[in-house]
Simulated assay, not measured.
Amino acid sequence: MYPELFKISLPNFFSGFLGDYFTVYSYGFFIVIGAISGVSYVTYESKKLFNLSFDKINTLFLLLLIAAIVGGKVFLIFEKPSYYLDHPDALLTGKGFVFYGSLLFTIPAMLLYFKKQHLPILPMLDIMAITTCIVHFFGRIGCFMAGCCHGIEWHGPLAVVYSDPSCLAPLHTSMHPTQLYSASMILSILITLLFIKKHKSFNGQLFLLYLMFYAIGRSIIETFRGDLSRGYVIDIYLSHSQFISLLVFMAALYFYFKINPGKKSIS
């Protein structure tokens, strides 16, 4: 696709230390768009419901950013432990993140922050469920443009072929557009959560439904993924992400029935 959106020629006095061009990369661009959209949603909802200050929202997103980067890199180690133990510098590049690692690290970070700020935990988690969908949707569009998280070889009507040498996907190979499958799945979850939001039965419902919906969708899409470096728990049959999806689904299902209108919820 287009890993580089565009380049801007720089004045001569910048070229010595910045190069001749300033390059805007697709992945980073869509991540920024997603982050801005996510912050905007949290700001609107939290101010409306809890009068949360913009400074606290900024602090929350900074905390989540750090947790997401650390978690994404930690789970990346699990994919090829021996390689990253021998080449720890490879973890410092901008390439290579595991979404589940980021998600599972940001959840406790959110809980600690909400508790410290004396914010209602479950209502805030519902807000963050929709926020995560917004950010993740744009992130998957960025993945599609960059070629990461690509699919297995396929010659169907929706197949995509990457030809730009800067792409992370195999070149000149017809593949499943798994990034677009993921983006469509996340958008569907987002629309569903926005609908349920108006009729939800208890606080925390949106967050738990998000976890379950995503776990199911991710497990299905995994069967079409072609970036085999992510590794398997059971070779060929059960990938790391599918195994984590199973654990996430079971945990979310447990809390879904534990936290309900007939029982006292966490606040």
Score class of each variant (00 low, 15 high):
Lys115Arg: 15
Leu247Gly: 11
Pro11Lys: 02
Ile141Val: 10
Gly147Asp: 02
Met124Ser: 06
Ile221Leu: 03
Leu18Asp: 09
Ala109Gly: 13
Phe144Gln: 06
Leu65Asn: 12
His136Arg: 04
Phe6Lys: 06
Leu92Glu: 11
Leu119Met: 07
Phe114Ile: 10
Ser239Phe: 00
Tyr232Asn: 08
Leu60His: 03
Leu238Arg: 03
Met145Tyr: 04
Ser219Arg: 09
Ser163Trp: 11
Leu180Ser: 00
Ser37Pro: 13
Lys47Gly: 13
Ser26Leu: 05
Leu206Pro: 00
Gly72His: 00
Ser40Asn: 15
Phe75Tyr: 11
Pro157Leu: 07
Ser182His: 01
Tyr254Ala: 08
Ser201Val: 09
Pro88Lys: 05
Phe257Ala: 13
Leu187Val: 08
Leu238His: 09
Lys198Thr: 08
Val233Glu: 08
Ser82Pro: 07
Tyr237His: 12
Val135His: 01
Thr59Gln: 15
Ala68Val: 09
Ser219Gly: 09
Asp164Lys: 12
Ile33His: 12
Thr106Glu: 11
Ile36Trp: 10
Leu85Ile: 12
Leu10Trp: 14
His199Met: 11
Leu60Pro: 04
Ala252Glu: 06
Ile259His: 00
Ala183Lys: 01
Phe50Asn: 04
Tyr100Trp: 15
Ser163Val: 15
Ser184Gln: 00
Ala129Thr: 10
Lys264Pro: 02
Thr106Gly: 04
Phe99Asp: 06
Ile77Asp: 07
Phe78Val: 12
Phe243Asn: 00
Ile186Met: 01
Gly231Gln: 15
Phe202Met: 14
Phe54Ile: 15
Tyr181Gly: 01
Ala169Pro: 05
Thr132Ile: 11
Leu18Pro: 04
Pro3Met: 07
Leu64Glu: 09
Lys7Thr: 14
Phe105Thr: 06
Asp235Lys: 07
Gly217Trp: 05
Thr23Lys: 13
Tyr214Ile: 12
Ile186Gln: 02
Leu10Val: 02
Phe114Met: 06
Val248Ser: 03
Gly38Lys: 01
Ile196Met: 06
Thr223Gln: 14
Met212Ala: 10
Val233Lys: 08
Gly71Phe: 08
Ser53Cys: 11
Ser229Ala: 13
Met185Phe: 10
Met1Leu: 13
Thr178Trp: 00
Leu211Lys: 03
Leu76Ser: 15
Leu111Ala: 05
Gly101Asp: 08
Leu65Thr: 15
Tyr27His: 14
Ile127Thr: 08
Ser188Ile: 05
Tyr181Cys: 02
Ser26Thr: 11
Phe255Met: 03
Thr223Ser: 09
Pro3Asp: 06
Gly38Met: 08
Gly38Leu: 10
Gly204Val: 07
Leu187Trp: 04
Pro3His: 06
Gly156Pro: 12
Lys115Ser: 07
Pro108Val: 03
Ser46Asn: 06
Thr59Lys: 12
Asp55Tyr: 15
Leu194Trp: 04
Phe17Tyr: 15
Phe195Arg: 08
Cys143Tyr: 03
Phe30Met: 13
Ile186Cys: 01
Asp89Glu: 11
Leu65Trp: 13
Val248His: 02
Gly38Trp: 00
Phe14Thr: 04
Ala68Ser: 10
Ser265Ile: 07
His176Asp: 06
Leu91Ala: 03
Ala183Thr: 04
Phe75Ala: 02
Leu65Ile: 12
Phe97Cys: 03
Ala251Arg: 12
